[in-house]
Amino acid sequence: MAELGDTMKARTLWGVIPLLAPVQLLLLSVIIIPSIYVIWLSFHVSSFGQSATFVGWDNYIRVITDPAFHSALINTVIIVVVAVHLELLVALGVALLFNSGLKFRRLLLVAVLAPYAVSEVIAVAMWRFLFDMDVGPVTQALQALGLPILEWGYDPMHAMIMIALLTIWMHLPFTFIILYAARLALPSDLYEAARIDGATAWQSFRRITIPLMGPAILVALLFRYIFAFRLFSEVWLMTQGGPARSTEVVAVYLYQEAFSYNAFGTAAATAWIMVIVSLLLASGYIYLLRRQVNANAK
């Protein structure tokens, strides 16, 4: 047996290169090398058909001082902070609801998962009609209840609310599944013991559920931060960033710089700002994950 192990080790990397090659080639040629090229691009000024000139940090300074970038960044942060946390609360509520023993649980689970199958494009079409300011059924329902309607066609704030609702609708299945799986994994004898000790439902929630689900909540949050930060299609299809660039998010700003204004240098700088923010968010994730692994080892 030892011999087999040794020969396997000796031949290891050479022999398995053909098995690893497809993944590594795809990642290198489509993601890694292009991303590194974007760094180079971000320090140059160029547009189609012109040779590039080195400009140092100019592009970054230009992006960071651009009022349009500020408004895009603020919109992105609003979506990340408001929509993601709201989504987390709802997902947690639904996960606990599912765990409390429901009839037709599998069927209901499939119902909650359904939006996962829907394309952003179709979702935007739905939302635009449901909230149509003249005939949309949601608008009518809001009016019937005497509530204010969403004037998303011209009020940027209302358009942002629409986009936030839409992203929550699209991503709730993901967050819900992560939290529900984590809740299912908690041992039921803990709750049994707490009940025998006379703990109320609220106490077991505060003292058992929340601390033990902490890691899963963090994982769900960080994934959603990272994905909300690259939000593009929903905004582009809903408002194209308008009216007057007021609903742009960072990815839409990047797209406009590159493909509408041909400013590939500032677009590249924006791209790397996005990568760096994602890396920062992820390093928080890895740090927390390490701590979790250490805690489990103890």
Binding site: L13, I31, P34, V38, L41, I226, F229, Y255, L279
Partner: peptide, 27 residues
């Protein structure tokens, strides 16, 4: 298979997912 290079490249496999797709459209 086990090797230092392979274990290190797992980190990179995960790291790659952090790059927003719109970034690579530029080049």
């Amino acid at each position: 298979y086990n090797s230092r290079l392979l274990n290190a490249s797992i980190v990179y496999l995960i790291g790659v997912r952090l790059i927003p797709p719109i970034v690579v459209t530029l080049p």
